[in-house]
Design a protein around this nucleic acid. Structure first.
Lengths: 141, 141
DNA sequence: ATAATTGCAAATTTTTTGCAGGTTC
DNA sequence: GAACCTGCAAAAAATTTGCAATTAT
């Protein structure tokens, strides 16, 4: 799938075995939390430290190579940054599935159905700048 | 706004001053994280302990009196459970605004504009049960 | 009177930090 | 060789727990 090495180069990040594998397992599994990433990388690199996972996740999120997916009542998961989509999050097992949103309209519930997913609740968050902050930023310039 | 006392009664929870004020400040401010709740309740009840805040938040979320709003890169905030809506989350100051979603369709971006909110990213999560878990649950019965 | 709740302190868990040694470019 | 990165251990931050005293019903 991803050419991890050039993704890293583009962001001025060095290509280490650890970092590559972190990206690898996130990409392979789609959505993993810190502990899951740690235990999976541990298998191929038994000496990796949890601190290294934390540090890398931080950098990779900053550089927008990966993306945090916050989840109610659980630890955030991380995914490789990809084209816009939404998430089907299982309340039971915590699994996360991706879903395209061509239209975002009625699509949502029919999409859930199409994925054999029993939809209980829809959560929508729009991230951006509120009026107050826009004004404050404009004042400075 | 809310008749906190009957909301608690309905859920078999006792009406303590601490609990009432926790609900009060969440309702007043709309969306607060644990520390914000703590410091605000502290003003009216200087002896309250942080552990009490944690315990109450847990119970109130369980009983669906309040709701967790997880936020990328920050601590979750909590809001009084209310009719479905979505959130305008400021990347700059972290403020959260509510927004109705009559249609959920094209509405989103025009709603943002209407709130003078500079929309950068839309995050949609559907919570429910994945196929695997539905099957597993069905097997049991 | 009973059961739930509080507040404290301690325990646990999660995340961050500093730094010496090693690696990548 | 310079800057970056890792792994360790320690520190800091966040959350949970146990328990005795108190409070709500």
């Amino acid at each position: 799938m991803g050419d991890y090495i050039s993704m890293l180069k583009q962001n001025g990040l060095k290509t280490t075995f650890q970092r590559l594998y972190i990206m690898q397992v996130i990409d392979d599994y789609g959505h993993l939390d810190i502990d899951e990433i740690y235990s999976k990388v541990l298998l191929v690199h038994p000496s990796i430290s949890l601190a290294t996972i934390y540090k890398n996740i931080l950098t990779l999120v900053e550089k927008k190579v990966i993306k945090e997916v916050p989840i109610e009542g659980k630890k955030s998961k991380y995914e490789i940054l990809k084209q816009d989509h939404f998430h089907l999050i299982c309340i039971e097992c915590g699994s996360v599935e991706d879903c395209d949103y061509e239209e975002l309209s009625g699509v949502v519930s029919s999409s859930s159905r199409h994925h054999h997913f029993l939809q209980k609740k829809v959560e929508l968050s729009v991230y951006g700048y509120c009026k107050k902050c826009i004004d404050k930023i404009n004042e400075k310039s």
